[in-house]
Nucleic acid binder design. Structure first.
Lengths: 215, 215
DNA sequence: TGTACATCAGTGAACGCGCGTTCACTGATGTAC
DNA sequence: TGTACATCAGTGAACGCGCGTTCACTGATGTAC
């Protein structure tokens, strides 16, 4: 194979010229670093090293490191949402809309905490460069995990378990519960064994749901 | 003043020999760095620089940097507890034990979140090197903030608002609520204005209390 | 269809920086006689 | 009370390291004629 043909064979790691999808490759490698060691493990030189590209090549695609970090954090948030969706896909609609709405919120919350426990590095990265959420558009715009929570709350409203005026409070409430639980289970409560952990997730979400829907 | 007398006058910044309280000074300076920039701002060389001591002097008092970091995180946790105590000191016992118990828990939670908002660097530092809390001794041992929460729950039990069997769940529940709220208000919800923020804190804690005490 | 040339996406070397830690040291302090 | 000496708590210099970023460059690609 003559050298001049290498480029016709598509991206080749050993031939760095015209990588073609370097931007995506940089983000992917960064996500991998985040997965392994959290936000502080994202290091431009190591990202480049993993792709087999010189460190300064990144500057063709990002103004500087922070811009790459933002892209990586975005990706981490997407992965969180995908993990939640995966768990939600298994929730069967069993006729009773009230039971379904409650179960949907519960599983969404479980998905959130499960992701934090399974991917602590990505979870921390997702919130290391927060995308501000305004009080007006809670769940409406922004990341897809927020949209899932908003959908869950909408179902509670439709089912008559939550009043529309409390939807904003409920949003923050439910989010705070799973977010806090995630932080604690990864931190001071890291010694809880898996069964205790799972029981706490369910109990915690149950209390929130009870508190929200009781009027 | 002859040079030989300097030491009799106690620690003197310009005369580094036999500083006397270097260990405490190192921790204090580290806490200050944490206050200003969070856990990642704690840097041994800068700590030493601020005291006016050579970097390696720290090795007389700490085996290595992580040991100093632990001491600083301990101190941050203490400061959190003190902030909560300060708010709790103003809670008046107004006869009704049920109302008092609820108010005590509410103010404890507010103190927690207020500290996070007022000292984000210290708050992050407090949880950057978590002291594991076992499932058996929730609030019994460990940091003093946990003891305050345990006291609050004890009062709820005494007042007949919480059953003893649910005390463990309640502990994690209430902690998760204020911890999560703190993280969100410092992160994605940082654009909420102070009134909205305060309303969310109260509303969030109310839901938890309602969910906990409703049986 | 072939060729000149601008553009694009990478390279290689170097920069200055600040870090944690180690080394051999030194001067002050406390103790034994 | 004075003196020899061990100990203690610091110093100063140096180490190796890895980082983000800048510079001038180069080879491949795409385009105009």
């Amino acid at each position: 194979v003559p050298t001049s043909n290498l480029h016709e064979l598509g991206p080749d790691k050993r031939d760095p010229y015209h990588h073609g999808a370097l931007r995506e490759a940089l983000i992917d490698a960064g996500v991998q670093l985040a997965r392994e060691g959290g936000p502080s493990a994202i290091v431009l030189r190591e990202v480049a090293r993993r792709i087999g590209v010189s460190p300064n090549a990144a500057y063709r695609h990002f103004q500087a490191l922070p811009e790459l970090l933002d892209a990586i954090a975005d990706e981490a948030r997407e992965e969180l949402a995908r993990a939640m969706e995966a768990e939600l896909a298994e929730v069967a609609d069993a006729g009773d809309p009230q039971a379904y709405a409650i179960r949907f919120l519960l599983v969404a919350g479980q998905g959130y905490v499960h992701f934090a426990l399974a991917e602590p590095g990505l979870f921390a990265t997702a919130f290391s460069r927060p995308k501000p959420v305004g009080s007006g558009d809670l769940g409406k715009t922004g990341d897809s995990a927020g949209k899932l929570l908003d959908r869950a709350l909408g179902q509670l409203v439709t089912a008559g378990l939550l009043v529309e005026e409390e939807r904003g409070t409920a949003f923050i409430n439910a989010w705070a519960a799973v977010h806090g639980l995630s932080g604690l289970l990864l931190g001071p409560l890291q010694e809880l064994d898996p069964e205790e952990r799972e029981a706490m997730i369910v109990a915690s979400l149950s209390v929130v749901i009870r508190g929200l829907t009781k009027r």
